[in-house]
Write a protein that binds this DNA or RNA. Sequence first.
DNA 1: GACCATACGTACCGATCGGTAACATTGTCA
DNA 2: TGACAATGTTACCGATCGGTACGTATGGTC
Lengths: 204, 204
Amino acid sequence: MPTDKKIETSISDAHRSTPPRAAEKILGVARDLFYRQGIRAIGVDEIVKRAGVTKPSLYRSFPSKDELAASYLRQYDLEFWERFNEAVDAHPGDPRAQIIAFLTRVGKRTQRPEYRGCGMTNAAVEYPERDHPARIVSEANKQELRRRLRAMASAMGAANSDTLGDGLLLLIEGAYISGQLFGEGGPAASVARNADLLIAASLA
Amino acid sequence: MPTDKKIETSISDAHRSTPPRAAEKILGVARDLFYRQGIRAIGVDEIVKRAGVTKPSLYRSFPSKDELAASYLRQYDLEFWERFNEAVDAHPGDPRAQIIAFLTRVGKRTQRPEYRGCGMTNAAVEYPERDHPARIVSEANKQELRRRLRAMASAMGAANSDTLGDGLLLLIEGAYISGQLFGEGGPAASVARNADLLIAASLA
DNA sequence: GACCATACGTACCGATCGGTAACATTGTCA
DNA sequence: TGACAATGTTACCGATCGGTACGTATGGTC
């Protein structure tokens, strides 16, 4: 039986068919638990248990729990910008439509029962210390988001583009929080409508 | 010396000059630490140490840490509505001015270096479980805030008053979060301006 | 088969978590 | 003075926290 699947085709990851399989399983489980329950609420023991690995495996791939949390957020960052750029790419040259498209999707996501807010925002709340690995990733993400929103507001031709960009950021953060606070039927459902109103007022 | 201050005027708290002094000290310290560092980040040992009391004293006044956290939030709730109603009372019959007055103060508070967001919001992020004592207090506070904002939007004569009320809530929550994420010079500084724009657009 | 790196598992560490039992001390009031 | 209620003291509980020392499989290379 073990001699069966020995067809080692010359795939890119030639000389490692299974090796760092543990790290990926760990990060996958950590991502899920950290997001749903919170980082502080989850111990490393539960992560390794659910991942089907042992604790030393975790600490061979990640120097500490804090760094594991930072890795989770770095992955979250990638997926966030994927979603963001998807909305941007759907409306080339039309920043207003880009924002509305993004916020429409945000509004929908916040109404899902399993929605638990923005992983970045939540991590920043959990770790107020400025030098915490998780918070550093979170702050960088938010700084970049602010920069892009302001740039888009400027591209829209808003007179006070920085104010509009910041206003959009406030609405977005408000939607993240309200989504997990109120659940279905909460204020986050109206984020796109309110953003559209705010944009209209800022362009007048 | 002890015979000196024995002037027990018939004040309301007549027959207890010192008795439940421990509970108040504990709650005061807990309030400070919970707000600044987060509830999960602070252990009961540190609370009693800083309060100058012992652990049994804490558990004589509070059935559990979770209930202590809930008590902290109930006090926070009182102070919140004090601030809110202060802005309301300053502009009788003018809901728009009331909102702007409140948000102007929020915007200023969020720029202070020690600002750490809304204790209610933070607690809800820390405790996603719906039946947690702290979260129950937090959710009730937010529900009431939403109700009042919608009522004020209606009083302003907004066509779609629920949408405007929710939009204002999104801006407020966004300011709370952005205040602790960006610190001074962050997006929260513009919350009043953006709210005013949104109101104007909603009344048009 | 000898070798060697890599990944994994068992068992354990000290510290801290929230919470409690049992008893001594204090101050206030009747 | 004597009773009562609140607080303090000391010592402890089992559970869990993040993290690690150390020996054991495993799989590819010569």
